[in-house]
């Protein structure tokens, strides 16, 4: 354990931790655009610079190890000047279309410009302009908005390990692209959207089926209903409709989702969902009331039990349903109907 001083507070932390981690541990929030605990520190955005007494220059807190006796200031005048200058530089190369930008309300650049009072950039030079890459079915890449924090590239190469995207060109021309700039559809992208979730600005956005603003939605944390990994996710809900899904850091998924969990949620609100019970009458399924449906089932159960015994009734429960529902179905079969004929598709 080492002890350092951050903004006048003594902090004790495990050796090898960064200044950023030390600050976080006592609730000192250092702004950052590129930091992600899952990644090897890469120190790209430089927003998290802090002042360390005795150091030659400002240091990036996300990638500088804390050391014993270090005295750190996270919001000193020189730090604020540098942060404002860096934000100024970012904004100089970023469209000011927050009014219509889909990321508005959840854009870290927007938040930081607000926090540090950057209304507009003081530079008026060249701005980058790229065609949107909309070739992927589920998300688009708008390099015009990219601030090159690099999170998407590193999430793709270090977390998702797909290596679909990379940096292309150098200097001011640097942008995130696919090999030979052939576009996402022709890349090795598996549409997991984990880069999209990492993007702090509006450069990588899910393709929306309907418009919404982030401040209009409710978020509900739940567990993905596809495979058995049990990824944690948030359903974004507007007007009783799931309009987007986002990954949440959970034990098993480490903040990741796959294409199914992330983008294949249309079934929830699909028009072909069953809305009423149906009973086959004269060979045709007809909508009926719940009462009638229950009656038909209950009568059949009683009938079969009487004629062939309870073991002539079988139930298939579902690996898709809740634990509680599986329990209740076994109870229905075993306690109420009286048979152990209950199974599910565990083997398929």
């Amino acid at each position: 354990m080492i002890t350092l001083n951050i903004n006048g507070f003594e902090v004790e932390i495990k050796e090898g931790s960064t200044i950023y981690q030390a600050a976080s541990s006592i609730g000192v929030k250092i702004p950052t655009l590129c930091h992600d605990e899952r990644l090897k520190p890469h120190g790209s955005c430089r927003i998290c610079v802090v002042e360390v007494e005795g150091a030659r220059s400002l240091v990036a807190s996300c990638s500088t190890p804390a050391s014993n006796g270090m005295v750190v200031h996270t919001e000193s005048e020189s730090v604020i000047t540098a942060r404002r200058e860096i934000l100024d530089l970012m904004l100089a190369n970023h469209p000011l279309d927050c009014l219509t930008c889909e990321k508005a309300g959840r854009c870290t650049l927007q938040d930081l410009c607000y926090q540090y009072d950057i209304e507009e950039s003081s530079f008026d030079g060249k701005k980058k302009k790229y065609e949107k890459d909309t070739s992927n079915e589920f998300y688009y890449a708008d390099q015009t908005k990219c601030i090159l924090c690099g999170k998407c590239v590193y999430v793709c190469s270090q977390v998702q390990n797909t290596d679909a995207i990379c940096f292309v060109d150098r200097g001011f021309e640097t942008h995130v692209g696919t090999p030979f700039d052939l576009g996402l559809a022709k890349s090795t992208c598996v549409s997991c959207g984990n880069c999209v979730a990492a993007c702090p600005v509006g450069a990588l956005m899910p393709k929306r089926k309907e418009k919404f603003r982030y401040w209009e939605i409710d978020k509900v944390k739940t567990t993905c209903s596809y495979c058995g990994v049990g990824c944690q996710m948030e359903l974004l809900v507007k007007d009783n409709k799931v309009v987007e899904v986002e990954p949440v850091k959970g034990h098993s998924n480490d903040g990741m989702l796959c294409v199914k969990g992330r983008f294949s949620y249309d079934f929830i609100n699909h028009s072909s969902r069953l809305k009423k019970p149906m009973v086959r009458k004269n060979g045709v399924l007809e909508e009926v009331s719940w009462d009638e449906a229950y009656d038909v089932i209950a009568n059949k159960i009683t009938e079969v039990k009487e004629s062939d015994g309870a073991d002539a009734i079988t139930g298939f429960s579902s690996a898709r349903a809740l634990t509680e529902e599986n329990y209740l179905m076994t109870k229905l079969m075993r306690a109420v109907i009286g048979t152990n004929n209950i199974d599910h598709c565990a083997r398929l």
Partner: peptide, 21 residues
Amino acid sequence: TEEESCGKCTPCREGTKRMHE
């Protein structure tokens, strides 16, 4: 230096461009 900036960090990538301008 602007041309040869690797493009990774903001101050160098954006800043050398603006200095040049």
